[in-house]
Design a protein around this nucleic acid. Structure first.
Lengths: 127, 127
DNA sequence: TTTTATTTACGAAAATATTCGTACGTTTGT
DNA sequence: ACAAACGTACGAATATTTTCGTAAATAAAA
């Protein structure tokens, strides 16, 4: 298994767009990015080219406007990022992260219920 | 209130040491760092000097070996990092982060119990 | 066809983070 | 007093990430 380096913040923004919108051109992605921040078109282009070199993205170059797709799964990437984050910030303690996340973010009832359901599932499996 | 920029990974390593060991000299910190990775002494020194400039650290320069302490609280810093992380990686959904964290990290029973207790507390407050 | 717009490729500047060498002062040991 | 060890200050080299200008190719419009 080849371990892919941590995507940078900018790369993650692009991955998020591709995960949510599916196959997209540079312009598609750029238009979404522009909603939230100033950015030049060639900047987005360059980033996506680099991500393609790094195998973070696939591209179909058969038409003039190349079409990019994420080449890493959202779940797996999130998992890697969470693991690293827990190690860096909470010395490896997942429960500390969980409590910090629940404490500061005013979580609503629906979310809490979902988490409780999830906890029960885990406990069932652990038996 | 002055918002302090996100500490880099290296800075976070140093903060973690200071949070756990309390007031320390550069050498103290450096010896801990060395256990986990190659690092030159002046590199650690420089980092801590920069962190002092940025007001991340306090220092007492009254003795020859300056004594540094963290100038940001662990809880608050972790909170800021968690918030940013949730925004960047989970589009603001704390519960998604929680489930991802619980799912991948094989959490043991003691930790799960602690989390359940914590959930109950939150629910009580929300009433 | 000629011009205009769109897109890729590419190099390099700018910004940020990390690492280290060296000078110089202070303390410690001989 | 002298040398060795230790510590800070500081500039600069590296590395990494982000940004953008410009040229060349292709497509679309006039």
């Amino acid at each position: 298994m080849t371990t892919i380096g941590k995507p940078t913040d900018s790369e993650l923004e692009i991955l998020n767009i591709l995960w949510s919108k599916g196959p997209s051109t540079v312009r598609d992605v750029h238009e979404v990015l522009e909603k939230n921040k100033e950015a030049g078109y060639t900047t987005t282009l360059k980033l996506m080219q680099i991500m393609h070199e790094k195998k973070l993205l696939n591209r179909d170059a058969s038409s003039k406007s190349h079409i990019y797709t994420a080449n890493v799964s959202q779940e797996k990437t999130q998992g890697q990022l969470v693991k690293r984050f827990i190690d860096n910030v909470f010395s490896g303690s997942a429960s500390q992260l969980v409590m910090q996340a629940l404490g500061n973010h005013k979580t609503n009832k629906a979310e809490l219920d979902e988490i409780k359901r999830y906890l029960k599932e885990i406990e069932k499996k652990n038996k």
